[in-house]
Amino acid sequence: MALFDMDLDRLRAYRGASQEPADFDSFWARTLEETRAYGLEARFEPVDTGLRKVDVLDVTFAGFGGHPVKGWLLLPAATARPLPVVVRYLGYGGGRGLPHQHLLWPAAGFAHFVMDTRGQGAGWDGGDTPDPVGSASAFPGFMTKGIEDPDTYYYRRLITDAVRAVEAARSHPLVDAEHTAVTGDSQGGGITLAVAGLVDDLVAVAPNVPFLCDFPRATTLTDKAPYREIGNYLNTYRGRTHRVRETLAYFDGVHFAARGRAPALFSTALEDQTCPPSTVFAAFNAYGSDDKAIEVYDFNGHEGGGPYQEAVQLKWLPPRLMS
């Protein structure tokens, strides 16, 4: 595909079109307070996977509404002292999959916590966490579930799960809670930005080709799913655009990014029609720390840097985790 978005000079100055709600901070403070009224109840069960160099724990913790959320905790075998931890969030439609799919950070010598994604897991890697909360009419997928009210929107539950995942990871005795980084690709990158804005003591943040950013531009620039789900919903429910945009503003990665303070490494791709580069740059340019960088892949689509970006992270992240 050809380049379709702004040129790079304009991207480096673009600030986004989303309007931040006046009660953004109080909405999220209330959401987390309500969830923390439930005990975390994190449980870690050893799993025999046949991996000799990595110990695997099957995790269950209480997420939004006290609902059980699954995950994996992977540790270098025979770990005897607390290790810095990399918490990872997953892309749209996927679940936690199998433990041997998550070996990069244990191989680098760190603890690795992988959060399952409630209600997802039938698109590629399987998931083990249902979403017990129903919603009104929605276009097939997750982008429009409960979309006409911030309190009922699907991503309120998922982002809250993600904050609790950090708390669950830190609760394990072999995790060094003071050295926590978060990362993810696409949807996982958008969730990474949300956690960066809601958890104030992370040591590093690494969102790759992040989704859920600059909704007003994304939903009018690209016909690609998942953003197109929102357009399809509004195609049916005429006259509700303003209400939907008001909801989405509470979940926009640009506003979370503005509250991020940890060092950050972003990535984007200039031919990415799923998460257009202008939406990523809107979040990057808003990010609240001067200690930030962005890798730009000029002839790539939504795969972004793929293994090349992992190689960049392997150089960038360890010094911050071990500082």
Rank of each mutant, 00 (worst) to 15 (best):
T160D: 15
A162C: 15
A162S: 15
V163H: 08
R164S: 10
V166L: 12
E167V: 09
A169Y: 12
R170G: 12
S171Q: 11
S171W: 11
H172W: 13
P173H: 14
P173S: 15
P173L: 12
L174C: 13
V175H: 07
V175P: 05
A177Y: 09
A177F: 11
A177N: 14
E178R: 15
E178Y: 06
E178D: 13
E178S: 15
E178G: 12
H179L: 07
A181N: 08
A181K: 06
A181L: 11
A181M: 11
T183M: 15
G184K: 05
D185C: 08
D185T: 15
S186H: 05
Q187M: 15
G188C: 10
I191M: 04
T192I: 08
T192W: 03
V195Y: 01
A196D: 04
A196M: 08
G197T: 04
G197A: 08
L198I: 06
D200K: 12
D200Y: 06
L202H: 02
L202C: 06
L202S: 01
V203P: 01
A204G: 03
V205L: 05
A206K: 02
N208G: 13
V209Q: 02
V209D: 02
P210R: 03
F211T: 01
L212V: 06
D214R: 00
D214T: 08
F215K: 04
A218F: 09
T219A: 09
L221P: 08
L221N: 09
T222F: 09
T222C: 11
D223F: 12
P226I: 03
Y227R: 05
R228M: 10
R228H: 14
E229M: 08
I230S: 00
I230G: 04
Y233T: 01
L234D: 02
L234P: 01
N235C: 11
